[in-house]
Amino acid sequence: MTRIRGFYLAGERAILGAITVGFVLCFWEGLTRGWWARLLEPALGSGAAAWRISPIFLSSPTAVALTAIRVFATGDIWSDLGVSGLEFLLGFVLAIAVGIPLGLAAGWYRRFCFAIEPFLSALNATPRVALLPLIIIWVGIGIWSKVLVVFLGAVIPICINSLAGVRTTDAKLLRVARSFKAAEGRLFRTIILPSAVPFILTGLRLGVGRAMVGVVVGELYAATAGVGFMITVAGASFQTDKVFVGVAIIALAGVLMIEALSRLERRFETWRPKVGAAT
């Protein structure tokens, strides 16, 4: 008995989580299959019909799983995945290429920061997807409109975090380096850049989320291919199971990328300047 209890306590989190997830999936499956309606019929009479929900409306875990297998087996999904992946990659790489140098420069040159600050704050306060109708006018409904939305979504957190990274460099280190007459370029490369790395990684992690929103919304709004497009088409034709498959793919992609970046972040955590801790 104590061994079972010990086992439970050791894995309590996983066990309780698995139980609730199983319970919810079971409840969901039962709703579309009419298990609960049949179960409640003696008690509620005709009112029990409310416990049976059309699969078109709600889908079910098994239907979603089967559709996922079918979609991957027939290979329909690969072209959509390719398009969305390309949009994401191009937009995100562009955001990194612009956001990090811009943020570092703005952090290093005070006056430059003053000049671009209003634009950064304004863009930060605007949900960038609201710009979609404009972007569509400018670059059409092909993949470039999505690349642009992804770029705009990801560039702001990346830039702001890089900026913050430069700003929070330990002042003591700078003073020491300056007293030993280190050149400004050297200062930047050996002190500022390394201590900004953890912040940049945080920016990348936040940027991934925004970029995903950009891909999905861009494709929901106007596209001819992509996972978001698949979701819209499936939704418009009441293929609820396919919608869930699309949502699951996006969620999975997001989780994987954020997890990878979190690992990288933890790896570089020791580089983060302990400002104020050793004063």
């Binding site: 309590e12 989580g17 609730t20 919304v217 949502v247």
Partner: peptide, 27 residues
């Protein structure tokens, strides 16, 4: 314990861009 029970759902919802659910929400 409540956290253990709910954390899978919170994590999943956190990972999904909620706007991707729009087509279902419209249905």
């Amino acid at each position: 314990r409540l956290y253990f029970c709910l954390s899978p759902f919170i994590d999943v919802l956190n990972a999904v861009p909620r706007v991707a659910l729009l087509p279902i929400i419209i249905i």
